[in-house]
C-alpha cells in the first residue's frame, strides 16, 4: 500500500500568495539512480529567495533557488532543470548521492 505523502507545500504557497509574494513552485518530475526525494516532492521559492520544502536532501536547493529567482526576473512561466551526478568541478549543484533528478519550476500567477 502506498500512503499519499503531503507536505502541505501547496497550502503554504497559497499563504505566500495571499501575502502578496511572487511564488515559484519547484517539483521533482523524474529521478534516475538513487535520489533522496521521490517524484512529486515540492519546494516553493519567493522573490526574496526564501524557500520551503525540498527537492533533494539539501544538495541542489541553492541552485533551484537561483533558477527560480531568474524565472521571476525574466518573467518566464516555466523551466525544466536537470541535475546530474556530482563531480569536483560542480560540487555546488551536484547530487552527492550519485543520482540524477529533473526539477520543473513554474511561476504561480
Amino acid at each position: 500500500m502506498k500512503n499519499s505523502f503531503d507536505e502541505k507545500i501547496l497550502d503554504e504557497a497559497k499563504d505566500w500568495i495571499k501575502a502578496n509574494q511572487k511564488v515559484v513552485l519547484a517539483t521533482v518530475i523524474q529521478t534516475w539512480g538513487s535520489s533522496p526525494r521521490q517524484v512529486g516532492s515540492r519546494m516553493i521559492v519567493n522573490e526574496k529567495g526564501d524557500f520551503s520544502g525540498s527537492v533533494s536532501g539539501g544538495c541542489v536547493e541553492s541552485a533551484v533557488v537561483s533558477e527560480c529567482l531568474s524565472l521571476i526576473k525574466d518573467n518566464k512561466p516555466c523551466k525544466k532543470i536537470e541535475f546530474k551526478v556530482s563531480n569536483e568541478s560542480a560540487w555546488e549543484v551536484g547530487l552527492a548521492c550519485g543520482g540524477e533528478i529533473a526539477v520543473y519550476i513554474e511561476q504561480i500567477h
Binding site: M1, K2, N3, S4, D6, T27, I29, Q30, Q38, V39, G40, A102, Y104
Partner: peptide, 20 residues
C-alpha cells in the same frame, strides 16, 4: 498511484489519493 512523466511526452502526472 504513481507520479511521473508520460513516456515520449512532456506531460507530468501527479496523483492524489485518499489519506489512509
Amino acid at each position: 498511484k504513481k507520479n511521473g512523466v508520460i513516456e515520449n511526452s512532456e506531460i507530468f502526472v501527479e496523483t492524489y489519493i485518499k489519506p489512509i
